Simulated assay, not measured.
Amino acid sequence: MPFIEESDLLELHKDIDKAQIINERLLDQIKYKNKELKRSKIQRNIFAGVTVLFLIATLAITSFTAGWSTSNFNKSETSFSVPLDSLESFKARIDNLKKENEELSLVKEFYLAKNFLEKETIYSVQVKSFVDNNLTLSSKSLNNTLFVKTNPFYSYSLGNFETLEEAQKFRKQLVNIGFEDAFVASYKEGKRLKIEPAN
């Protein structure tokens, strides 16, 4: 095994330190050059953007003034005629769009109300409980119903009311038409809180 003198070892360490200092300086120079390149690229992009905006503004002003000057000389040429049937089709299209907008606003209101119902305490009148999940009673078209699992039963409730009094009035109507076991329960976030007094 070769033997290294201590002085040679110190010289090697000095050479390594010098090389490390040189590498750090080179890295600093590379970082500085990268910053300069980024800065010049940003300046070029800004200059290009300003140039494009200037050209667009110039074209807009030119076309506006050209249109204005021709309209002053030829006022009779500025009017145009549209067939009556195309106006009717536009009117029908606008009416259809208005109807679609009304339908969309109703859907939006429904989902806003549904979100409100999920976050607030609501009252509903439970009319039946089942041991099995009876999906035939649950329908997506019935918006004002609740179908909640309360272990081990599935409960079926009608109506979504903000106040207990409204739910109790509805319960009395249901009892009068034959749902004698109906009772009011309160719900929050799709879970039953408690059974309310009959009154």
Rank of each mutant, 00 (worst) to 15 (best):
L164E: 12
F110W: 08
F90E: 04
E6Q: 13
K149D: 09
N74M: 07
T121A: 05
A113D: 09
K169Q: 13
T51Q: 13
G178M: 04
I42M: 06
S105N: 11
Q168I: 07
F54V: 12
S89I: 04
K14R: 11
M1R: 06
L117H: 13
F64S: 08
K119V: 01
L10S: 09
Q173V: 03
S86R: 02
A66N: 09
K99E: 01
T150N: 15
N101D: 08
A19V: 01
G178L: 04
L55N: 11
K31I: 13
Y154E: 04
N96P: 05
K14N: 08
T65I: 13
S124N: 01
T150C: 07
Y156T: 03
N34W: 06
E77C: 09
E162M: 11
E36H: 02
I195D: 02
N133A: 09
A92Y: 07
N34I: 08
M1K: 06
L106G: 05
L59K: 10
E109A: 15
F170L: 04
S155C: 09
Q168G: 04
L9F: 15
S138K: 14
N23S: 14
L59F: 10
F3D: 12
Q173R: 13
A57I: 05
N72D: 00
A185Y: 02
E6I: 13
K38C: 09
R171E: 15
S124A: 05
N23C: 14
R171W: 02
D28C: 10
L104Y: 07
I177T: 12
V52R: 13
D85V: 03
G178N: 01
K194F: 03
F47L: 12
E166W: 03
L10T: 07
S63C: 13
V184T: 05
Y154K: 07
F183W: 06
M1Q: 06
Q20W: 03
A185K: 01
K14G: 05
E5G: 08
E5S: 12
V184W: 02
S105L: 15
L84M: 11
P83C: 10
A57H: 08
